[in-house]
Amino acid sequence: MTLLKVERLTKSFGGVVAASDVSLTVRRGEMVALIGPNGAGKSTVFNMIGGQLQPDSGHVLLDDAPITQATASERFRKGIGRTFQVAQAFLSMTVLENVQMALLSRYGETRGLWSPVRPCHREEALGLLTQVGMEGVADRPSAELAYGDVKRMELAIALAGDPKLILMDEPTAGMAPAERSALMELTDSLARSRHMGVLFTEHDMDVVFGHADRVLVLLRGQIIATGTPDEIRRDPRVREAYLGDTHGLAPLTARPA
């Protein structure tokens, strides 16, 4: 069934159209990649779905309920978790506390002035860390983690909201090559076991073609192609988008030595 439905989202910044009539869907249990060259509008689309940006027009629906006007915090409560291109974590806290914070927020318990955080939802937080394979470093300060582990922790934080949908902005950016596929395989298995939808942007084509069920290609604010990785690989428009406009260079083939 359709989990996320994005209808004709449009956004411009001071006359420059960053996204134009973007429509897409994500189903439960599905991994969808949003790709495109730099400046194609990926972040704009992503932030309109995550609630960091308000669209000029268009709608976002989650389980058929409109969330276009909801703030980022409200979207969390409605079941959208997200990770960031540059991992965002509470670096003054331990790994476990990062996850506990998300749980406290989910249960609406962030205003307490008396009871310490330390024992709150400890077991549940440990359980989430186990799912991403980080129970062993639960009590380490998160500032000491390797970058790849911060990304995994972000995933555990996102899972703490019991999300229906996870948005991942360039999940493997900044990671060592070896860590990348491990993170995506983890995401893949979590998406299937928890029946979540995952929408991610990505530069690394191995990651995209290796893990996405469907790929959307964005160019100059518009979706120019949608399909399975194989279909996208063969699509001439996509090749052109990534290879640039070769027509303009035709006379240069006889270039000076």
Partner: peptide, 10 residues
């Protein structure tokens, strides 16, 4: 350059 046609030309 990621536009390799451009790169190839110059």
């Amino acid at each position: 350059e990621q536009n390799w046609a451009f790169a190839a030309a110059v």
